[in-house]
């Protein structure tokens, strides 16, 4: 599966709150950042967690966000780099 987003592109982490296991932390949901790099395609943690085979596999990205975009009152240019699977990303 070829990646939908390219390095440098603005993306937003989906603001979804499913009950089951997934590997997208709540504190980045709904927040926008920039794609840094892509790292192949991998089975979906949600599907593995329900004893499935992980398909459809999803491209994995490293995404950079500003800490001041995550936390009220955070001053300065500190950053967060985080791994997000493609089905959790939307164009921003």
């Amino acid at each position: 599966m070829s990646p939908r987003f390219a390095p440098g592109e603005r993306v937003r982490v989906a603001d979804r709150w499913p009950a089951g296991h997934h590997r997208t932390p709540g504190y980045v949901k709904g927040r926008a950042g920039v794609v840094l790099s892509t790292h192949g395609s991998h089975g979906q943690p949600e599907v593995y967690a329900s004893f499935g085979d992980g398909r459809p596999r999803q491209p994995l990205y490293r995404v950079r966000l500003g800490l001041r975009d995550l936390w009220l009152g955070y001053a300065g240019g500190d950053t967060l780099d985080i791994e997000i699977y493609e089905h959790w990303l939307e164009p921003a």
Binding site: P25, H39, G40, D78, Y85
Partner: peptide, 9 residues
């Protein structure tokens, strides 16, 4: 720069 090791890497 904080790196959150959330997945495969």
């Amino acid at each position: 720069r904080v790196h959150d090791s959330t997945a495969e890497l």
